[in-house]
Write a protein that binds this DNA or RNA. Structure first.
Lengths: 140, 140
DNA sequence: TTCCTTATTGAGAATGAGTCTCACAGGTAA
DNA sequence: TTACCTGTGAGACTCATTCTCAATAAGGAA
């Protein structure tokens, strides 16, 4: 058993949940691909691997994985959510090219600090944030 | 006729659309309230004012108003959109207090500039952005 | 191991925001 | 007035996600 499987068992135990083949398969599938996929894509991929799992279970398991920071759920305004594994768990935001659909990950400490500063000015502290840049290529 | 009604007629003409009571009522309703309301709230308010209009027309008209920058459409990750009138059309982003649900509007030029700088570093220019801070009150 | 209790699952129904369809109403142009 | 559109309302439809509930399978106890 590798570390990731062990970690999955740990969080399931912590949550008082049982370790099942379906839960392992779903985490394995998400973990296997760093793309920003939606639930249906993930569901289809698991089925294509010959594992029989239902959509309901995919959604239910993703919730657990998101809650325990194994997976990040993001809303790019498309009417459905996308998910990515948080293997190294380094925070980043997303830039979406409106011409190609490419999703670029970026992190900028100055931006993080500025957000907190802005919130502070209003008497708040940032709990989480959504920062997405919809961009197009610079003309050369 | 006040300026805003005239402006509505102008954009309808520009779009090759007719000026109708329903379209005027929908814009009046959105304009009357600076809250960040969803389509259903707006629909109910119009009906409560005794104006008979359908949900379909509310959605269709909001699209026209959004396209012509009379209304801003925003996605706070709640599974439905919220709308606000753009009376002065000054850009701002939103901060949502997770304890009270309050929505605070803010604008920060440094943040705007930083976003563009980040996009440039990846060879892009920003077309639009989504920036939302989910916050909680600072302890005193 | 076998049993027993309970959590989990799958299939499909339900939900809910938003969109589409289409017959009818109301303007518009000639 | 006629002929022709566009706009509207009612409700069907879509699609991602959630819910329901009977059947199944963990996993602790004996």
């Amino acid at each position: 058993m590798n570390q990731s499987n062990g970690a999955l068992k740990d969080i399931l135990r912590k949550e008082g949940l049982r370790y099942t083949n379906q839960r392992q398969s779903i985490w394995d599938e998400i973990r296997s691909n760093h793309d920003h996929r939606d639930a249906e894509d993930i569901y289809i991929s698991i089925r294509n691997n010959g594992v029989n799992v239902s959509r309901a279970t995919v959604y239910r398991t993703i919730d657990v994985l998101v809650k325990n920071r194994f997976v990040r759920k993001m809303d790019l305004g498309e009417g459905r959510f996308r998910y990515e594994p948080r293997l190294d768990d380094k925070h980043h935001d997303h830039m979406v090219c409106e011409e190609t659909g490419d999703i670029i990950e970026y992190f900028n400490q100055e931006l993080e600090d500025l957000q907190e500063k802005i919130a502070n000015e209003f008497g708040y502290t940032v709990v989480r944030h959504v920062h997405q840049l919809f961009v197009k290529p610079l003309k050369k």
